[in-house]
């Protein structure tokens, strides 16, 4: 797992729950928490922290991942502004994930395990994304999608009608874009 994910997770936890909470999670997970953005760390480190958070927050690990995805996208947008330049909607940015964003990620992490997204025909107001990954971190992906909309202050609904974790042969997201309405704080929970 890319070090930047740990950094983002730390930032998200500290921002929402305070720094002490982060150290509690680290202690619970038995990790020292020294992660640098350009490092690569075992996936299990991330899972141990997520599981610790789930236990603490009384959530499922999936819910934690989705929350994290949503929270971290605004920070990613600050750090990697270039990916967002030229876009005014998640609708145009999401289809560039494979070609533009992941291409950039590979420059930093040549061995990174990155998911692949394909796009299928859907009704006009819907973007249908299919998630392919050996890690099955579809909840994180959903959080990232929702977080992207938050960056653009768009209101969307994301349905996850097919999920490999639920036994389907693939994970599908139907993302429906609504009229622009005043958004809630990006930090607010559902």
């Amino acid at each position: 797992m890319m070090g930047v994910v740990f950094n983002l997770l730390e930032a998200a936890v500290c921002r929402t729950y305070g720094e002490a909470q982060w150290y509690e999670l680290l202690d619970k997970a038995g990790l020292d928490g020294a992660y640098t953005a350009i490092g690569n760390y075992p996936d299990t480190d991330a899972f141990r922290i997520v599981n610790a958070a789930a236990e603490t927050l009384q959530l499922t690990p999936g819910e934690v991942l989705r929350w994290f995805g949503r929270e971290s996208m605004t920070m990613l947008a600050e750090r990697y502004r270039i990916f967002f330049d030229g876009h005014s909607s998640a609708r145009t940015l999401l289809p560039t994930i494979n070609r533009v964003i992941h291409a950039e990620v590979r420059k930093l992490y040549p061995n990174a395990l990155l998911p692949d997204f394909s796009f299928e025909d859907a009704p006009a107001d819907t973007l249908r994304m299919v998630y392919h990954s050996s890690r099955s971190l579809c909840d994180l992906a959903q959080g990232f999608i929702e977080g992207t909309a938050l960056v653009f202050k768009e209101q969307i609904t994301v349905e996850h009608p097919h999920c490999k974790l639920r036994g389907d042969h693939q994970c599908r997201f139907d993302i429906r874009f609504r009229e622009l309405v005043p958004t809630k704080s990006p930090l607010a929970k559902d």
Binding site: T36, A37, I38, E104, R106, K107, L108, P110
Partner: peptide, 18 residues
Amino acid sequence: ARLAAEVLAERGLRELYQ
């Protein structure tokens, strides 16, 4: 300093990749 170092390292990695 760490963030700045990471930015520098990222740039180096990107250039190397390129």
